[in-house]
Design a protein around this nucleic acid. Structure first.
Lengths: 213, 213
DNA sequence: TAGATTGTTAATCGATTAACAATC
DNA sequence: TAGATTGTTAATCGATTAACAATC
């Protein structure tokens, strides 16, 4: 019986899970077979306690006196994160950023499939991108009626993001990966993951100043 | 006399500062003149206490019984974040992602100037990009000898990121904006800001699963 | 003035770390 | 077996929230 059974998992823990996943995949690729929480902690600059605490939310993956089998732990975290399943994605906004995200081939390897791309700009509608023909925005609704879409990748200007999000939610989209620098208001049950690109540059600017002042 | 004078500012607070900055700039653009911590908190889904607590790290910007003057608070946060100064940036890795980041015009408006772009790929070296001619990587060292660069934007594959970071650090770079999905090891005094694009997708995947299971 | 709202101190809450019995 | 390392409970630490005197 797991300790944390009922509680929902803190966002912090989920983020670290994604980090463990990344490091373990590297270790596995490098042929490492076992690792202790102490070694893993050293690699990632976090405490062994934190790693064991985090993992205990999901089950028991190690062995006393031995540590963790890298491949097994990797597979388990993969399952926990839902990376064994397939996810369909659509891209909204086929600018530089949209293209960059969508062509990152690794996502496809992890089960994230891009099945359509939309844009408002006449000059690119109908053009090919990554095996897809770019569709006009006004076809979004009918496309969503006819296709099961798990995740919408939103790479449009901030000024349009909320309005598009509303349309997506209305059509039943449950996951939005938002790159627009704006907080989206969505109803309970819809998951929004925001990538704070510009905020991150401002943080960097602050910390550079902090050093020198 | 400020309360937190000696302490260094928690990363959390800095991130929220960037959020306040964004929201205030929108409010100001919309012509809003004053706002209370309660109203701002409502807009951002955080408590008024937290806003006041955060701001108290840096000074006193409000007025009892009135709240905050939007334009003034905006300007002050702008100063705190260092967005009144100019920053020079170089781009390393002119792929889709690099292009997207570098062409985001708002950065220039905030004082971030891209002064060079580097890549290893023969086929794009010498081509123009955003008023710049793409330089070969082997010119990186000499360029850094001759130019003051504040921030290096790293949009290269994970496999090359650490090696390039080492070269940058060696040449005295103090700020690295890292988009490669790998933790960079840098000496004390160098600030690395990491944008976790893929981790964020894995988080989204987890939270979608969490809802349905 | 009376009402509103700040800045700051104190209380609470949650997350991280330490400690240790269990056991491979 | 003895040493190592887990999973988990307890202690600590830090961050968030509540409360309130100060005052516009």
């Amino acid at each position: 019986m797991k300790k944390h059974d009922k509680k929902q998992i803190p966002q912090r823990v989920v983020s670290r899970l994604a980090m463990y996943f990344r490091v373990l995949s590297q270790l596995d690729a490098a042929g490492v077979e076992r690792i202790s929480s102490r070694e893993l902690g050293e690699m990632m600059s976090i405490t062994p306690s934190q790693i064991r605490q985090d993992l205990s939310y999901f089950g028991e993956f190690g062995q006393q006196g031995y540590g963790y089998r890298v491949k097994y732990l990797y597979e388990e975290i993969c399952k926990i994160l839902g990376l064994k399943e397939q996810h369909t994605m659509i891209l909204i906004g086929v600018g530089n950023l949209g293209r960059a995200i969508a062509s990152y081939t690794n996502f496809r390897n992890r089960g994230f499939y891009l099945i359509a791309a939309f844009d408002v700009r006449e000059e690119i509608i109908g053009k090919r991108f990554n095996d897809l023909v770019i569709k006009p925005m006004h076809e979004l609704g009918s496309f969503l009626d006819e296709n099961k879409v798990d995740i919408a990748v939103l790479t449009v200007p901030a000024s349009q993001a909320q309005e598009i999000a509303n349309r997506l939610v209305e059509k039943g989209i449950k996951g939005i990966w938002n790159f627009a620098p704006i907080k989206l208001e969505v109803p309970e049950g819809v998951v929004v993951e925001h990538v704070h690109i510009s905020d991150s540059l401002y943080s960097l600017s602050f910390r550079l100043r902090e050093k020198t002042t």
